[in-house]
Design a protein around this nucleic acid. Structure first.
Lengths: 175, 175
DNA sequence: CGCCGAGTTGAACTGAATCAAGAAACGTGG
DNA sequence: CCACGTTTCTTGATTCAGTTCAACTCGGCG
């Protein structure tokens, strides 16, 4: 939480909110200036394709920030739904700080680092999706997020990996 | 080019270099502080998997910046090769500016916006890879980069889409 | 002119999707 | 605390999109 202040500043409006499991925090299509810092609990962002299938883009556990950054910064309608997987304590903060210029150099530098880290994880994800089989992606997921499987249903892991729940079940069978 | 100065500042070291077609600019595994601004020409970043297959991560045409941002910022070894597709004029600049603090607020804000835009395109790419067929991805590629197909061989489009050259050929047959 | 990389085509194969059904686990209200 | 309905997970049969392999064509370049 301290590091969050370092980024957004004590002055920026940051609202604490509690959500129950399965509450929708943000809907596809809206222009949202908000980013969601997970103080406690577990949330996810996902999109729904034309066939009605969910695709999980990101999980957010404690200390993570979930947001559609591009939507935040450029006022584009977001493609992402965000909802809670567990009861969660969320700090909602506005990303206007890039414009309002109450932000200091230090905050902006911290922010750039956050963005760089996010780019890194997306880059790995893209390369993974292009070059690895479902089984390999599942194994990498377990290495990268060893604790998450205890907290989320398997079908959500499948959705994150880009495969069906059935396929994941069959992969697990082969250990 | 003007906007580049706005980001890196006139003080930062920025070296102009000319490369011939198919020259390698950066190799997988190195820690590189460099980002590559394409003044003229066409370059690409890609990874090579354990089976020796290339997967194109990004194309860089005029005015684009190609880099492994996370490697730049956090001094991680990069997974990306970078090489030229055409003879190219490149501005090589160091991303130390996040640390050296000669950077101004304005530059950092511009930089944050660049990063945010990049996050947006990666986000769309991830969702696309998870939710769309090869044919749909190809159609979206043509919409997004209508001019690129004139400049790159088809097999590179295939590599960018995450499919084989043969598969793309068959998709094109069906118009 | 000859060669090599790029594109195409077809046949056989395979990883993962789809569909359908049943079993296990879960939580909610009585 | 149990009983019920609803998700979640598993399993098998079938289908399908995309891979792999191999052969052939074309165009450009040295």
């Amino acid at each position: 939480m301290d590091f969050l202040k370092e980024i957004i500043g004590a002055d920026t409006k940051a609202i604490h909110k509690n959500f129950k499991k399965k509450e929708i925090i943000q809907k596809q299509g809206v222009v949202s200036k908000n980013a969601f810092y997970v103080k406690k609990g577990l949330i996810r962002s996902y999109s729904i394709d034309k066939k009605g299938k969910e695709h999980i883009f990101m999980f957010g556990t404690e200390e993570w920030i979930i947001a559609d950054i591009e939507s935040n910064v450029f006022s584009k309608p977001t493609q992402l739904y965000i909802d809670t997987i567990e009861d969660s304590e969320i700090v909602v903060f506005s990303l206007d700080y890039l414009k309002t210029d109450q932000s200091t150099k230090e905050k902006l530098q911290k922010n750039s680092k956050l963005l760089a880290r996010r780019i890194g994880s997306l880059q790995r994800r893209v390369i993974q999706l292009m070059s690895s089989s479902a089984k390999e992606r599942y194994e990498m997921f377990l290495e990268t997020y060893p604790l998450l499987p205890n907290r989320i249903p398997q079908k959500m892991i499948a959705s994150y990996l880009g495969i069906t729940a059935e396929a994941l079940s069959k992969i697990r069978r082969e250990l």
